[in-house]
Amino acid sequence: MLINVDNIKVYRGSIEALKGVSMQVEEGAITGVIGANGAGKSTLLRALAGLSPIVSGGIYFSNERIDRESPQQIARRGIAMVPEGKGLFPQLTVLENLKMGAFLLKDKDEAERKFQEFYRRFPMLKNRRKQQAGDLSGGEQQIVSIARALISVPRVMLMDEPSLGLAPAIVKEVVNIVLEINKGGTSVILVEQNAHMVFGIAKTIYVFETGQIAFSGPTEEVQQSKYVKEAYLGG
């Protein structure tokens, strides 16, 4: 298993947001994490990225313990995150935001090639590259956020509700991007409230409820389970 989460407990303020969560993330797969608001999904990604400290348990990446490392160190391992709320630098230009994504890249020519690749794929990015990121629409910001995380060609992408607040057409585009980067070898942990989106592309799904994992398994199993049917599919 690429990532092993071993019974972690995490606090957000004084609230126990994760109450002993264990997960295995398979290399090369898209792993889905669904659940209601406040169930702890975002906290899980923050713990993986090193932003939220864990009070007990451990997180292992390729059998190495990473839960004591800083976000910078974890980023250097090739774990990239598309945070909740997009996590852009609002007064930096789109290009500067992308450049920050290329921060750890040793080869600057490769970074430039990636920029050109994104401009080709998203002409919007090219047109707006000198604009401040904070001035873009929600959908455009999400594209920038994802593009920025992809520049470093990460081994793992942590995506926190990428479809939130986006028009269906853009959501489709996001789905395509996720499938593409996964085909390229990047493992994806996809946190979403939009369960249908996750059912469509994930191999394994974890269902969170109030800080714990209520149910997990291969997508087909999870989709067919009574639990999920009642919670998500209305019956």
Partner: peptide, 21 residues
């Protein structure tokens, strides 16, 4: 310089990008 501006605007995101805060 750009690291500094990024850190001022969103220090968590800067850390995620690998900036040494």
């Amino acid at each position: 310089g750009i690291q500094m501006r990024a850190t001022a605007q969103n220090s968590e995101a800067a850390a995620l990008m690998g900036v040494n805060i």
